[in-house]
């Protein structure tokens, strides 16, 4: 699996370089008070909130499965993922469907804002105060200053993967051993 992921990463980067029109464009959304941005090259589509089939015994931020035109994809609640208090889903709640390393995943966000162009030079690394703080912000790889404030740029690969995938791999390994 790890090899596959690496391979995918390469192709994805290639695509990124090729597609100039998507460069520097970020889909921004609001969760809580903060605005977040996610590179538009990851975004597949945005769909309205749907009935979610819950899966038992999984992480709390994995809300369950939705049916995306016959394709069954998992959805995660970004709020819960950021360790914020969960909130009620409203009409404004949306699911951003993203493709990361050949995995399709839905992100539940409170409110979609807009598509913003953010130039590389206006992105700065997040200030880190201490180790703990830094760890908490690991999905945020940069802060972008735009006209009306600061947006936190999210690395979706870290958002959905990292610990999750590691856990899955770990689980698989354990299962093999047992």
């Amino acid at each position: 699996m790890a090899e596959e992921l690496l391979k995918n990463e390469e192709t994805e980067q290639d695509e990124l370089l090729e597609d100039d029109s998507q460069k520097g464009k970020f889909m921004t959304f609001q969760t809580g008070k903060e605005f977040f941005g996610i590179s538009i090259s990851y975004v597949n589509e945005i769909i309205a909130m749907q009935p979610i089939a819950a899966i038992p015994e999984v992480e709390d931020y994995v809300k369950g499965l939705i049916n995306l035109r016959g394709k069954i994809i998992p959805v995660i609640d970004v709020r819960v993922r950021f360790k914020m208090e969960p909130c009620e889903y409203t009409d404004r709640t949306c699911i951003i469907v993203i493709d990361v390393k050949s995995t399709t995943i839905g992100l539940i966000v409170e409110k979609i804002a807009e598509v913003d162009t953010i130039m590389d030079d206006s992105i700065m690394p997040p200030p880190s105060l201490g180790r703990k703080e830094h760890e908490h912000n690991k999905y945020v790889y940069g802060l972008a200053r735009t006209g009306d404030g600061v947006k936190l740029l999210i690395d979706p690969e870290k958002l959905i993967k990292q610990d999750d995938i590691e856990a899955v791999v770990e689980d698989a390994r354990k299962e093999e051993q047992s």
Binding site: P51, T103, D164, D171
Partner: peptide
């Protein structure tokens, strides 16, 4: 249909399916 690999494997569930109304059942 298989449960997407992203979701960790839950013992006692072998997959999922769509029901007639479009909802998902495990």
């Amino acid at each position: 249909k298989p449960i997407p690999p992203y979701v960790k494997k839950v013992k006692g569930l072998s997959g999922c399916t769509q029901l007639g109304d479009g909802s998902i059942a495990l």
